[in-house]
Amino acid sequence: MTAPSAAPAPSRSSYRPHAVRRAVGARESWVFAALVALCVVMSLASPYFLTVRNLFNILQGMSTIGIMTIGMTMVLVAGGLDLSVGSILAVGAVLTARLMTYAGLNPWLAVVCGLLAGVAFGLVNGLLVTRVGIVPFIATLGTLSMGRGLAFLLAAGPAGTVASNVPMRDPGVTFLGAGYIGVVPMPVIIMVVLAVLAALFLGNTVLGRQIYAVGSNVKAARLSGIAVPRVQLFTYAVTGLLCALAGVISAGLLSTAATNLGQGVELDVIAAAVIGGTSLNGGEGTVHGALFGAAIIAVVRNAFVLLGLPLHFQTMIIGAVILLAVGVDRVRR
């Protein structure tokens, strides 16, 4: 009688809705519904909202944050935190631009170097957390500051002149940030491709599964034979890579790598992940949820522009959205 097959028929069918909700992801479907509702309201409020051009503008605006959020989601799901994402972005961008413009390196080789620097930055974060044992908040707060300093250092001109940005004009590389394929901006394509890859990775690989395991119970993960430090290191390294890529894209969009690129962006990235259902306690979160979260932030921003609302309310509204999203989730449980 304890066998599941002996369960009475009526209760069996009543599990269906659960199964459906589970497939979509309960939290994510709410976030998606909220996003749709927001878009409906906006399209009623402004005739410009529902135009192809505006929609792609929104998507382009959120793409660098979206790309970083993919990494941040992995870090958070594994129970970590990375405050240094904005600094990694700047280092990746400035280093790439410098190698290309001042050192005359082959542009694509420069991009590869910039991305590798991002990975190295991420590995440093990961090692500080896993080997030295500093809590992620403090470790990445430290590297946030150091990384920003490094970006300033890298921007210094060939003769040691102080500069606040380094030009980056290679048409191939700037295409990553400023190009279009048809009507679709290149960064949007990159974001979507990466998101799909990351979602497939998290859902279908052993390492992806282990990221969830480590975040939901680190002791149990270790006792289940999971190489916990390696899993955590991986999430920081991937985040480093994605942030550096976001840096190259941002610099490409502007044709210049500014040293203050991505300053304060960590708050948006964390907010997007949290709105999208990622738990700061680890073990929970999805890539698509995080992107819905990033999209909500982007639509709110767009609303202020289209409706000509006073900009100082924008930050307040985004803060309210975070509290609302997390609060509703708490209450719903």
């Binding site: 052993v206 599964r209 969830y212 395991a213 119970n217 149990a220 034979g225 999971i226 073990g283 929970e284």
Partner: peptide
């Protein structure tokens, strides 16, 4: 404390060590 991934499905909990 030492074994369960409490919010994860039964399936994940059973397969965790064997999965690789």
């Amino acid at each position: 404390q030492l074994a369960l991934f409490i919010d994860a499905p039964v399936r994940w909990n059973v397969s965790m060590a064997r999965l690789p």
